[in-house]
């Protein structure tokens, strides 16, 4: 990936700038500024952890479905088979796979949630 600067650093720079101007904003925009900083933090975490999280999800979904493919395809089939009732909470390995995927996604979206 490109360095000097890395994408993570661009995100960090914009977030810092918003934090600097926030005290001078009206209350509504100050709030939205905080939301924007949080959004950039999420982007930063996704840049750092997104690829690994997706690879884990693809591996877990492939195990459950017994075939290899990309994220969208596997996720779509998982949904379709749950919808059809052929996968349930009783299906061996399903809850564990979904749990691992949820934990990885939450670490990107909201690491402080609990």
């Amino acid at each position: 990936m490109i360095t000097h600067p890395r994408a993570e650093e661009l995100v960090e720079a914009v977030a810092e700038w918003i934090d600097q101007i926030r005290p001078g904003l009206d209350p509504r925009n100050a709030f939205l500024g905080r939301v924007a900083v949080n959004a950039l933090a999420t982007v930063g975490r996704e840049l750092a952890k997104g690829a690994a999280a997706e690879a884990t999800a693809v591996a877990r979904m492939s195990e459950v479905l017994g075939r290899s493919s990309n994220y969208d395809d596997l996720s779509g089939e998982l949904c379709a088979r749950i919808r059809a009732g052929s996968l349930t909470v009783e299906t061996p390995g399903l809850l564990r796979a979904l749990s691992e995927m949820a934990v990885a996604q939450l670490a990107i979206d909201q690491p402080s949630y609990g």
Binding site: L32, V35, A36, N38, A39, T42, V89, L95, L98, S99, A102, V103, Q105, L106, I108, D109, Q110, Y113
Partner: peptide, 23 residues
Amino acid sequence: SVERPMIGRRASETEADLIALLE
């Protein structure tokens, strides 16, 4: 509003909670 897509990312908190309840 920037708030909207950020709330969208909160769906994963409910997924973590739902999986815990399903378990």
